[in-house]
């Protein structure tokens, strides 16, 4: 176990996962510091999504541990992990499609305030909840779309809504799974700016394929190859790492 300091928010220790005989995670060690923006990159099939699923509680690890703010979260259910301050977005758009953008956010705000089984009060007069939801909607620049159904939003608006929902739960650690996938250059630039703004003061970990996004936004980068962390470091360090170049970046440039 690494020496754990206050600034280590998320510590992953020798994490392993196999499905049947197939070993996907082969001992991942990773430490995310408070307030950093950390990118997880790697070729397809390296296990990036699996790592996210393990951290957020979708799957149980086969071995190893995950600590959030010093507390063990490996083996907990997604909702328990979310309540401890870690939440995630998804690779595919994952919103409440038949509810308005405002309501999508408000569900998250309800979670933050611990309103789960409240059947005895109307929600409309709950001022704190509604105002906070509007503020968040403004923050992800969707206030003009408050009343639109989530399914009627454009693709990039839906992705922004996703991030808003993630923020709404009040999580300190936010996992974003390919937030700019499938976006045009302009949309990507817009999204990067948005992410930079809204994650100010929080800890961010993201899977991203677009290297310009990674190098522009993130403080540190980890390269995951075949279920192992190949390297972790600042953008310059990773860019110049010979091993990484041959394993991943080189391949990317050929496209």
């Amino acid at each position: 176990m690494d020496t754990e300091t206050q600034s280590d928010v998320l510590v992953i220790d020798d994490l392993r996962k196999h499905f049947g005989g197939l070993e996907i995670m082969r001992g991942v060690d990773l430490t995310i510091k408070h307030g950093e923006r950390h990118a997880l990159v790697g070729p397809n099939g390296a296990g990036k999504s699996t790592l996210f699923n393990l951290i957020s509680g979708e799957h149980r690890p086969s071995g190893g541990h995950i600590y959030l703010q010093g507390q063990r979260i490996s083996g907990l259910k997604p909702e328990q992990i979310s309540r401890r301050g870690l939440t995630r977005s998804f690779q595919i758009t994952n919103v409440f499609s038949r509810m308005s953008a405002f309501e999508n956010i408000r569900i998250g705000v309800m979670a933050r305030h611990g309103i789960r089984f409240n059947l005895y009060r109307r929600i409309r007069p709950m001022r704190a909840i509604n105002e906070e939801s509007h503020a968040l909607l403004r923050q992800v620049r969707l206030d003009h779309r408050a009343d639109s159904l989530a399914s009627d939003l454009t693709y990039s608006e839906q992705r922004a809504l996703e991030i808003g929902m993630t923020l709404a739960t009040g999580a300190e650690v936010i996992l974003l799974d390919e937030p700019t996938a499938g976006m045009s250059r302009d949309e990507t630039a817009y999204m990067v700016e948005l992410i930079r703004q809204v994650t100010e003061g929080k800890t961010l970990m993201m899977v991203e394929h677009d290297m310009s996004v990674v190098f522009g936004l993130c403080d540190r980068i980890s390269v995951l190859v075949y279920g192992r962390i190949l390297a972790t470091g600042g953008p310059e360090e990773i860019r110049s790492n010979q091993e990484v170049q041959s394993a991943y970046l080189g391949e990317e440039e050929e496209h």
Binding site: S82, T87, V95, F96, M99, N104, I107, G108, A111, R116
Partner: peptide, 16 residues
């Protein structure tokens, strides 16, 4: 309603 639309999501938002 959120449950109807997307059960997975409400779990990851901290609801049982």
């Amino acid at each position: 309603l959120a449950l109807r639309d997307n059960e997975q999501r409400i779990r990851f938002m901290g609801f049982n």
